[in-house]
């Protein structure tokens, strides 16, 4: 008996731009029949082989391991060689729009210049820093538990899907970005590495470092290898406190301030938290907003501040469950 292969008809709009001939980029539309076996790369290959030999895109391994084929389909970052077209049809319907990861950095069609990505990747020293003897007498043992700590961070294939989905990258070109942070964590959590402190100092710089992440979870959502970069960012935050690298600034005081506020009120003392984080001078910049908030009944008076019932219990929990110092 013949195996029946289910197929669907789709319309694919592909971003096209050739700097030599085009003034502006445009979308070219192709109609294709796809089967449940097809991944996005099959679609691109067929367009190139059957419709338009000039279409440019990156691919190499076709096995989800080289990281070269990432593109966006209907704004979702995907590895072209891994993402099934049928899954995309489930999400978006039968019209798919294929874009480069970043339209501002296009070299040709779907091929972009990833220099910014690689520069930041280099900034965290993406390699083991250790004095390794050339002829070691014994093995350098790493326990399974230690491997588990870094395993998912180590699965990163530098495809850039997270980096070019990160909203902070779009507005702050200094921001190191999710992939490089995950890589930094991969080494700060490797007990053979000697550059932990240096790395933590790099990633905790204000303006470029982990404190500038807005915690949007785009990176966790998009990553085709489940690296979960925002989780690694959280752990880097924790490590900067554990290793005494965290300096006292508005961001660190803000994180720590939650503990104090919870200890005192159970709930947040929002005004008190901003004051603790900013200090009296920094507070000045918030005055216009505070006045506006006050006028609209958004700032409770100190005697009206909500307090939790069972506050004593919360105080006790804060005492016995605290594990970090600052």
């Amino acid at each position: 008996m013949e195996k029946s292969i289910q197929t669907k008809n789709i319309t694919v709009k592909v971003f096209r731009f050739n700097g030599d001939t085009d003034v502006l980029p445009y979308y070219k539309e192709y109609k294709l029949e796809v089967s449940q076996e097809d991944v996005v790369l099959d679609v691109l290959n067929r367009i190139k082989w059957e419709h338009s030999g000039s279409l440019s895109y990156r691919r190499s391994c076709r096995h989800g391991i080289c990281g070269s084929c990432a593109v966006k389909v209907n704004n979702k970052g995907v590895l072209a060689c891994k993402e099934r077209v049928f899954d995309l049809i489930d999400l978006f319907g039968d019209e798919l729009v294929i874009d480069p990861l970043n339209k501002q950095r296009v070299i040709k069609d779907l091929v972009i210049d990833k220099k910014d990505f690689w520069d930041k990747y280099d900034a965290v020293q993406p390699y083991l820093v250790a004095d390794v003897e050339e002829e070691p007498e014994k093995e350098n043992l790493v326990t399974p538990d230690e491997v588990e700590k870094i395993a998912d961070a180590d699965y990163c294939i530098q495809c850039g899907a997270c980096y070019y989905s990160c909203p902070v990258i779009e507005v702050n070109p200094e921001f190191i970005g999710p992939a490089a942070f995950a890589k930094a964590y991969r080494f700060t959590s490797d007990n053979r590495d000697d550059a932990k402190i240096e790395r933590l100092e790099t990633v905790s710089q204000m303006g470029s470092g982990v404190w500038d992440c807005v915690k949007c979870f785009e990176c966790a959502q998009v990553c085709p290898k489940d690296v979960n970069p925002i989780d690694k960012i959280t752990r880097l935050h924790q490590q900067t406190f554990q290793e005494g690298v965290a300096e006292s600034n508005v961001a660190t005081r803000h994180a720590v301030g939650f503990k104090h506020s919870i200890e005192q009120h159970g709930f947040l003392d929002e005004g008190g938290l901003v004051f603790y984080s900013e200090g009296p001078l920094g507070m000045v910049q918030h005055i216009p907003e505070a006045v506006n908030m006050f006028k609209n009944g958004k700032i409770p008076m100190p005697w009206n501040l909500p307090k939790s019932k069972n506050l004593e219990e919360i105080k006790k929990i804060v005492k016995i469950s605290s594990t970090a110092k600052f």
């Binding site: 935050h237 924790q238 939650f258 503990k259 947040l268 919360i314 929990i317 804060v318 605290s322 594990t323």
Partner: peptide, 20 residues
Amino acid sequence: ASCCGASHLQDFDDHLSLVL
């Protein structure tokens, strides 16, 4: 109830955030 930590407390103290 207490505050949930607003996705900041765990940057400082993961265990405390979990228990709360």
